[in-house]
Amino acid sequence: MRSDASDRKAPRALTAAAVAGLLFLHLPLALILLYAFSTEDASYEFPPPGLTLRWFAVAWGRQDIWDAIGLSLRVAASSTLIAMLLGSLAAAAMSRTRFFGREAISLLIILPIALPGILTGISLRSAFNLGGIPFSSWTIMLGHATFCVVMVYNNVVARFRRMPSSWIEASMDLGADGFQTFRHVVLPNIATALLVGGMLAFALSFDEVIVTTFTAGQQSTLPIWMLTELVRPRQRPVTNVVAVFVIVVTFAPLVVAQLLARRAEGSNEGGIR
């Protein structure tokens, strides 16, 4: 333990550069928070001429925003469910067995997020057009589920790899059948990984805009609503309020997911020692 990280002292320039980098990552969002209270409604004037709570009330009363939030939640929930099912099936298959074509399958699973989203979007759009499938919230969900699978898969496959196969054998030796083993041994063990993967998939879907612009018809999810406002601003302060809402809504589950993942990792390490 002689040279533990805590004994070393970081050079001052390095600390400064690291902190400056973090500020660069986080200050812009703080600025949106300030703008949500600005009395100025026609420009992005800084410093704001005055502060008001008025825009929160205005945004609250806008039905189009509520509709967009509702659609986003519905799409995110259903694509997360599909992704949790498909992702954990794939993870169960890929974690233990080695078989021909395994590498190709793992590539196929990560491909939807490895390639630019515009490719997924335009492919799906032209396929829907070719197949005569009308654009609806179902087509949005179809696209989202495709790239959400990898989120669940990554988390669950890592957990499967850490789970000793002797546990499953022990359960079988004690007389449990495959389904009982799954319910009482496998599921409780992958539960937190599944939950974390599901939360990340939900966050990814809730925020997705690139694929959605191609797979949505007339309906708008919250990101599509935002995009329209960004390209052609109608009521800037309302957009600011919605942006603040999105920041709050996405940060909370992410912090929870992070803490859960950290704790699960910590307890597992403790168990092995």
Binding site: L29, I32, Y44, D207, V209, P223, M226, I247, Q258
Partner: peptide, 18 residues
């Protein structure tokens, strides 16, 4: 580092418009 990765892409772009 993780939070910006997972927080809204559009909101983060929007911040720079401001």
């Amino acid at each position: 580092v993780m939070l910006p990765l997972w927080s809204s892409y559009l909101v983060r772009v929007y911040a720079w418009k401001l």
